[in-house]
Simulated assay, not measured.
Amino acid sequence: MGLLQQPHPMKATCRDQSKYCRFHRDYGHDTEDCHDLRNQIEALIRRGHLGHYLKSREVTPRPKGPPERQINVISGGPTADGSSTAARKAYARSTLEKHTRPEHEPKITFGVGEVERSHHIDALVISIQITNAQVKRVMVDTGSSADVLYFDAFNRLDLTQGDLTPVASTLIGFTGDSISLLGTTMLPITIGEEPRVKMVMTTFMVVDLPSAYNVILGRPTLNKIQAVVSTYHRTIKFPTLAGVGEARSDPRESK
């Protein structure tokens, strides 16, 4: 079996003393970031010398060549950046500004004990309160640039056409199709359980399409409540004045 060729130690001038490479036996970068070590390991794998080390590990195949097609997520609509060019430029400038962080922001963590079933592919589906109604089958989708309220749920909230604001924007769906909006409506939503709850005003894009869900909660609201999403733990967590609030996915609703 070919062995790794040990290089000569690097010159110790102007090296970052906080990082040490065991392969080069010198400072300057971490072992995990060593390109020389990585290249030699890959060469040994190609020659078949490390096969018995790889049998017990999952090997991720790497596609060759450029991608042949693109699959999009839900995008578009009059989101936080607005519909006009001027509004989008103003939004882009605002994202570059530094904002002060709260002095006592609760630490958000996820523990191993919070996972009921480690191997799952369930969607993250939660319940939230919209106005005075508890709404189930709310899918949390970090890939969506809009918060979506389906028309069936809109009607069951006892809302009418007078609660809709006409818009000229469209949404781009998963397949690339343009989806016309019935309008937008701004509603208060409450998420979490007392006393660790958050209430925010959310602008929903209302669409008349068949769906397994009542609502899609996208990035605008998730960012507004500073949510940290873990599909593995089937939970979203967010800071509140009373500590860390959370909304857990219902496995039955997810299926």
Rank of each mutant, 00 (worst) to 15 (best):
R196W: 06
Q226L: 07
T31E: 12
K64G: 08
D30Q: 05
D152I: 08
G143K: 07
E105W: 10
Y150A: 01
G113H: 15
P188T: 07
S127E: 10
T165S: 12
T190M: 07
G176V: 13
A80G: 04
D81H: 13
G143V: 07
R196K: 14
T203W: 03
A12W: 00
T170N: 10
F154T: 00
V148G: 00
S249I: 00
G162D: 15
S75E: 10
E114C: 03
C21Q: 02
S178H: 10
F238Q: 00
V135E: 00
L209Y: 09
T235F: 10
M10K: 05
E105S: 14
A90L: 14
K89H: 13
F204T: 01
T60P: 00
D26M: 02
G77L: 03
R62G: 06
I179T: 07
L187S: 07
E105Y: 05
I41H: 00
G218W: 00
D158H: 08
G173Q: 03
T79Q: 11
A92K: 12
L149E: 03
D177Y: 12
R88Q: 15
Q134P: 06
P63F: 03
N132C: 06
T203G: 06
T60M: 10
Y20R: 03
D177I: 02
A12Y: 01
V200M: 07
K107Y: 08
Q40F: 05
P106S: 10
M1Y: 15
S145D: 13
E32V: 11
S254P: 12
F204G: 00
L209W: 09
I225F: 04
